[in-house]
């Protein structure tokens, strides 16, 4: 037993928490769009990809410092989110949800192809080497700690924004009844636009932190897109705390499953857990029992 409960187990658990931070950060914006206002952005991870390219060009090509470039990248993706809503989602708001899915699926391929043509197929890298934190016999990645902190702060900010502000309340209300909100004096078009820009900004925030850990290429979204959707669903649509918890549960299963068995089994177990939970708690991990 002592062979199992060693420092490496602790390291795997901590790494699971840090991976959870990355996944939670990714799930944050999608939860707002997909979970709260019930609009499907299947191309969410591709918006993150565009944000990563934005960071690359600003830092590597135009020589901006990382912390100066980051707000611009967030604004860029926020703008893309708003544009996506105006051009693709708004005309389809009253159409069956499958139409949104297909349309944003088309945007996914457009963005991948656009990135291939505009930026090329080369893998790109910011070339920033973050320091490593050594704690006892464990080594922790600063870039992941940053992502973890950003996810935590982002989750709290979005939570309070949704609960304590007029626009947040309107966003939550609009998801319950699109038609009635207009009759109550709410400018639904404006609310959708703000929410889309906010979702895009959160994707931009994720992009700023992912570029510290991952290579940038037109297909980087393939690694994150599906798992992000699963986390949002597992956490309960629109439930930010649930999404946060789901990200860490998922990440720990991947990390510990990968430590005790083959790495692939970690993912198999995580996806199996998702399927089982869909039977047991279809409304999400933290859903109240009705």
């Amino acid at each position: 037993m002592t062979d199992i409960f060693d420092i490496y187990l602790l390291e795997a658990m901590v790494n699971g928490i840090l991976l959870g931070g990355v996944l939670a950060l990714l799930a944050l914006g999608l939860n707002l769009i997909f979970g709260v206002i019930d609009v499907t952005w299947i191309c969410y991870a591709e918006l993150v990809m565009i944000g990563m390219y934005g960071m690359y060009y600003m830092v590597q090509v135009f020589g901006l410092p990382y912390y100066v470039a980051a707000p611009f990248a967030i604004l860029l993706v926020a703008g893309l989110g708003a544009l996506l809503h105006l051009l693709v989602i708004a005309p389809l708001l009253t159409a069956p949800p499958i139409n949104q899915l297909l349309a944003t699926g088309g945007v996914l391929f457009v963005l991948q192809s656009f990135a291939t043509v505009a930026f090329g197929i080369d893998f790109r890298n910011l070339g920033i080497r973050m320091p490593v934190l050594k704690l006892f016999e464990m080594h922790l990645s600063y870039s992941r700690l940053l992502a973890f902190a950003a996810a935590l702060i982002g989750m709290l900010l979005v939570y309070f924004f949704m609960k304590r502000t007029y626009i947040g309340t309107a966003i939550r209300a609009i998801s319950q009844d699109r038609q009635i909100m207009a009759l109550m004096g709410v400018d639904t078009r404006r609310i959708y636009l703000i929410t889309s820009a906010l979702g895009g900004a959160l994707a931009g925030l994720a992009a700023c932190l992912l570029v510290l850990q991952y290579d940038i290429h037109p297909f980087v979204g393939l690694s994150f897109g599906p798992i992000t959707f699963l986390i949002v669903v597992l956490g309960g649509l629109g439930n930010f705390v649930g999404g946060f918890v789901a990200a860490f549960v998922f990440a720990e299963i991947i990390s510990l499953g990968g430590l005790f068995s083959d790495l692939e089994w970690g993912y198999v177990l995580a996806f199996a857990f998702f399927i089982v939970m869909m039977f047991i708690r279809p409304a999400g991990l933290l859903a109240r029992r009705s």
Partner: peptide, 20 residues
């Protein structure tokens, strides 16, 4: 001896196993 998916978003568990 271990295989992994090339698109895996995280390989830290594999690194931990290598350290061990």
């Amino acid at each position: 001896k271990e295989g992994y998916a090339a698109t895996a978003p995280d390989l830290s568990a594999l690194v931990t196993k290598l350290k061990r």
